[in-house]
């Protein structure tokens, strides 16, 4: 198999140098070029035909989002966003994921070394190189495809819906959550995402959905009409006190190299909500969530996995299916209605 050809687009010479040097350490990856601006980038995309692009979304002289929109329209290419941990970076990154970027990685910072970043980045590049991107239709047309949200449920239920997602999950979650009725059962979500991006992501979902979506805080109750998103860099655990479900937000060892990890959420859901819960595993690389989903199923929970065709990366759902932990394998646009049917 040939090497994965990577093009680095970043206006900082230092970042270009660091990324090139780091990626050079991996024999299956070849940095075929670097570009400081969109015009050079376009030239190099055409001439070098890279497999994967890393893109700094915040460049003073170039609108990274505009570049990405053009890229997705004219030369769709799996793109990984390299972003700072600032609120502005978070917002831009979410928009980039919206436009069609495959994944996001945070720039190295205080507690996060270049070495940490390159290991993660290499993993993401490998995944991205296998993603098949199709030319995007006009964004407005794509938005219209989103079906109508489901009308309010006849009865409020105290079921708990636990959802786990990774690569491609920001879009997948949007499809599911925007359809959920305003009195949907309480939802708890783990989306693999660098710390700081989750706040902006929750806000964004909240603006799009009938239900309330917010980043979870420790001891938040799981209530109807609300979805809680696990904050980046913390695990989220479901607990129960009498009839009240609530979440604990805590640090702890990474699970499957992830924090928050889907398995942590699912296992606690199996323990505290059991048959009163529904587990949903969406697109993403790796195996996080599969074991947890099996535990949920064993306690009587209903389980759903996103099908291969609608997944950006059919990793986590595939692992869950392999373990026989899944009741329903569904395309992303049918998952919300299936959940509603089951509550």
């Amino acid at each position: 198999m040939g090497k994965i050809r990577v093009l680095i687009v970043d206006d900082s010479a230092i970042v270009r140098k660091i990324l090139s040097e780091e990626l050079a350490k991996y024999p299956d990856i070849e940095v075929v070029g670097v570009a400081p601006d969109p015009f050079v980038a376009r030239d190099k995309i055409v001439t070098l035909k890279p497999d994967v692009l890393t893109l700094d979304i915040e460049m003073p002289r170039m609108d990274g989002l505009t570049f990405l929109r053009k890229l997705m329209t004219y030369y769709p290419l799996p793109t990984i966003i390299v972003s700072s941990l600032t609120p502005k970076g978070g917002k831009l990154t979410l928009e980039a994921l919206d436009i069609g970027a495959v994944d996001v990685i945070a720039k190295p910072g205080a507690a996060y070394t270049v070495g940490d970043m390159s290991t993660t980045l290499v993993e993401k590049i490998r995944v991205a190189s296998r993603v098949k991107l199709t030319k995007r239709e006009n964004p407005e047309a794509a938005r219209r495809v989103d079906a109508e949200p489901i009308k309010a449920l006849a009865q409020t239920s105290n079921k708990v819906i636990a959802i786990g997602a990774s690569t491609g999950g920001t879009e997948a979650l949007k499809v599911v959550l925007t359809k959920m009725p305003p009195n949907s059962p309480g939802i708890i979500i783990v989306q693999h995402m660098p710390a700081n991006f989750t706040t902006a992501f929750a806000e964004r979902l909240n603006n799009l959905c009938q239900i309330t979506v917010r980043e979870a805080a420790d001891n938040d109750s799981v209530t109807a009409g609300t979805a809680l998103l696990a904050p980046g860099n913390y695990h989220m655990i479901l607990r129960r006190s009498g009839a009240r479900y609530y979440v604990e937000i805590k640090t702890g060892p990474m699970v499957h190299h992830q924090r928050p990890a889907v398995d942590v959420l699912f296992k606690s859901t199996a323990k505290y909500a059991g048959a009163n819960s529904i587990g949903v595993i969406l697109t993403g690389m790796g195996a996080d969530g599969a074991e947890g989903m099996l535990e949920m199923k064993k306690t009587g929970a209903a389980t759903i996995a996103q099908d291969e065709k609608s997944c950006v990366v059919f990793g986590m759902p595939k692992e869950a299916i392999k373990l026989n932990a899944v009741d329903y394998v569904l395309p992303i646009d049918q998952i919300a209605s299936q959940i509603v049917r089951m509550v």
Partner: peptide
């Protein structure tokens, strides 16, 4: 570009 710093291209 007007604001290109010197030497930034030698990494290209």
């Amino acid at each position: 570009y007007a604001d290109d710093q010197k030497g930034s291209n030698d990494l290209d």
